[in-house]
Amino acid sequence: MNFFDHLAGNYAEVLALTGEHVVLVLQGLVLASLIGIPLAVLTYRAELPRSVVLAVAGVFLTIPSYALFGLLIAPLGLGTAPAVTALTMYALLPVVRNTVVGLRGVDPAVIESARGMGLSRRQILRQIELPLAWPVIITGLRVATQLLLGIAAISAAVNGPGLGNLIFQGLSSAGTPFAVYLALEGILGIVVLAVLADLAFAALNRVSTSRGLRVD
């Protein structure tokens, strides 16, 4: 029995776990965006709050994944809850940092002229700053997605969902001929998702970036 025979027999589970993996990463990504983008918008003009937010998000990202999952089990128990929380915390830095960098990268002269045209602060943010910062924000989301796809594999160690379960099944069947196949199925599933996510973000960037900003 080679790898492809094994995959053919196991594809239903691989697909189900791939689905769980995608949902898990999306949950973390959406939560991090809902928290991180408003946080960046609120703090990007004020030096102290901005550096505090970035420092805290930096500390989150520095905490090793197994330790963060472990710390979150204490209040949240095993399963999906600590996994989603940890992924949200990891995604915060790329999301917040890129939003801040994007918003701060907007040419002050552009904002000045918008104000001269009579736009309010809120209008400038919605119509000028966010659209101009959008490509950078998308890049942050893309980086966060790549990060989360890998880290989400650890969630299986705390009885969470996703493709990590195949990797750990491989580990627990070490010594059998299927061990390598199981681990490979988990790994390749994640690599394929990473490649697909990159393509999806490239497409999203093209479709959603303001027309005047496109390079081509």
């Binding site: 796809l149 890998g150 594999a153 650890i154 160690a157 990590g164 990797i167 790994i187 994640i190 690599v191």
Partner: peptide, 9 residues
């Protein structure tokens, strides 16, 4: 893109 735990296992 390969998760570390995957490589180790």
């Amino acid at each position: 893109a390969i998760p570390t735990i995957g490589l180790i296992v």
